[in-house]
Design a protein around this nucleic acid. Sequence first.
RNA 1: GCCGGGAUGGGGUAGCGGUGCAUCCUUGGGGACUGUGGAUCCCCGGACCCGGGUUCAAAUCCCGGUCCCGGCCCCA
Length: 411
Amino acid sequence: MVERLRGFRDFYPEEQEIRSDVFRTMKDSCTQFGFKEIDGPSVENVELFANKSGMEIMNQMFSFRDKGEREIALIPELTPTVSRMVAARKDLVKPLKWFSVQKFWRYEEPQSGRTREFYQLNADIIGSESYLADAELISLGAYILKSLGIIGFTKIRVSSRILIDRLIEKYLPGKREEVYYVLDRWSKISQPDRESFVKENGIDLGVLSSFVDGKILEGYDDPELQNLFKIRDFVSSSVGVDIEIDLKIVRGIAYYTGCVFEASDREDKFRSILGGGRYDNVIGQLGGENTPATGFAMGDVVLENIMKSKGLWVHKGGKQIFLAPIDQQGRMYSTRVASVLRSIGLKVDLNVMERGISKQLDYASKMGYEYVVILGEDEAKKKTVSLKILSSGQQKEIPLTGTDELFGAMK
RNA sequence: GCCGGGAUGGGGUAGCGGUGCAUCCUUGGGGACUGUGGAUCCCCGGACCCGGGUUCAAAUCCCGGUCCCGGCCCCA
């Protein structure tokens, strides 16, 4: 048998229906915030990523040469595509609020929270350099976490590269790379490792500690810090979620220019669930007008880990009905009953095996149906249906013309 | 790319050099029961990851590979 490729996943119905619920929740949230859905290609010319993303990303792409000798790659992220789309259209009315849910690919070692093919929700606001755009975007992220029922298990932290750069310039001049590196990994590395790294790189541990705990911000007056305060207040007011200003949030991406943020579970047991920031230079670098932009991405893999750990990875579907004909008259009649029930919006599964009532009930039960409608010669003659409620075993016969009101309440 | 730990029917497992056709549960298909049996009874299907090696003998020991689960790197 041919095996599934490493790092890829199959989704069987019982799994897929949950995924559909989750994606629908995310998309509905975006729509409620006035974001418009977009979609783009699954492959792009590698140059699109080469320019902006650096070496690491090049090594982690599924790239190949096509029949026309073009070097192309399965997209590892959306930002370059979005930027390309914006750069190509000068007539777009700003600001743009766009979102998409689609697949991405990265050739990495699969492990917890990471696969080679995954879905991401991307949301971007393009054309506004105001803190309002960052605040609206973070609000959207918080709203989605709320809609999914996990806001209580997560924390959202925000920072700014402009602010960090100024602080580094003032207190630890010339150590930008090193400070970024150690802040990003602060909670992942041990105390002795921190100290030796700091010592080796000639960084003052006392000053660095005040970055970590935020003491350095006390009494510091800076317009970018004021923006972070405003963002915090905006999010609190718009979605009732408290976010935290934390200088340890630097994000690894080369192209971020201002506000950066991420959401993670409170115990930091998983990878970050959502991450993003401001990328004001990318669209201009791709040949478009200089256009400020901010966005975030949220992957399905970590989300699934967290929701499963909280028992929230479950399907919340409507009632489903199985039609079980027990004889030839019942089979003919069942198509008519199916038609009537479907016309009032119910999900109706019709038996397609010529087998007895026992096996049909067994099947319906294993498939998780709530109701079975038993149909035979008697029902066909009387124009009725026999409704059996599987959870209780109760059964009653009702006229087909009366199904509207009866089943209406089931939806 | 690097480092650990794993791999027995669809799922979960027992066996860890030879003792009956690889154990048990579950799952799947069919039949009987010809309107209540999501029962019962009967029948059937289905596995030692792949390739080498050691040995009289390998699911079992050794080596390599593949895949899975973690971790590093990195996280767009």
